[in-house]
């Protein structure tokens, strides 16, 4: 089938197997910041933003993408707020292996779009959809709180 959607601000129109999942499709395009960790919507490594909301790309079928607006880190890296979040993650030691980092940053980005001053509980809530086996979430929480309080100098 044919689907048309927006990926990182650019229109994409393509012929796909409707049953193919979005994670597989994005990685086949070379959008490698979207990671694979479980295939079952559990780990959150494959998080993308769909109309500003974090979604697990491994659970989304290509057939459902028509008309949607998809964002990944590739499209956000040059944005000011993303740079500040990345600086906070780097400065606070919130990145260990970094496999979960793109997903954490997207989850935080989506939270900040809806709520520019989230409290600790709100941050924890959005991070809870993303598994990290390295950090115990301690330093990612510190970095995210710094961003929320506007304390990052980029």
């Amino acid at each position: 089938m044919r689907v048309a959607f927006q990926l990182n601000g650019k229109p994409v129109e393509t012929e796909v197997e409707p049953g193919m999942n979005v994670l597989e499709f994005l990685r086949s395009l070379g959008v490698f910041s979207v990671k694979h960790g479980c295939d079952h919507g559990e780990c959150g490594s494959c998080t993308v933003l769909v109309d500003d909301k974090p979604q697990n790309a491994c659970l989304m079928l290509m057939g459902t993408l028509d008309g949607e607006r998809i964002e990944t880190l590739e499209g956000l890296n040059a944005r000011r707020r993303m740079e500040l979040m990345q600086a906070a993650f780097l400065d606070e030691g919130a990145i260990q292996c970094g496999y979960c980092t793109p997903a954490m940053l997207l989850a935080l980005e989506s939270l900040l779009r809806a709520n520019p001053k989230p409290d600790e509980a709100a941050i924890r809530e959005v991070f809870s959809g993303i598994y990290c086996r390295c950090t115990g979430y301690v330093k990612p929480m510190v970095a995210a709180k710094k961003v929320a309080l506007g304390e990052v100098d980029g």
């Binding site: 880190l73 590739e74 780097l90 030691g93 970094g98 980092t101």
Partner: peptide, 22 residues
């Protein structure tokens, strides 16, 4: 306290893991 030497690539989601090539 020092930023990770590989940190920026990881923060930007660059293709640095085993599976990130075609």
């Amino acid at each position: 306290i020092t930023r990770r030497v590989d940190g920026t690539a990881l923060a930007k989601g660059k293709p640095v893991f085993a599976d990130d090539i075609h």
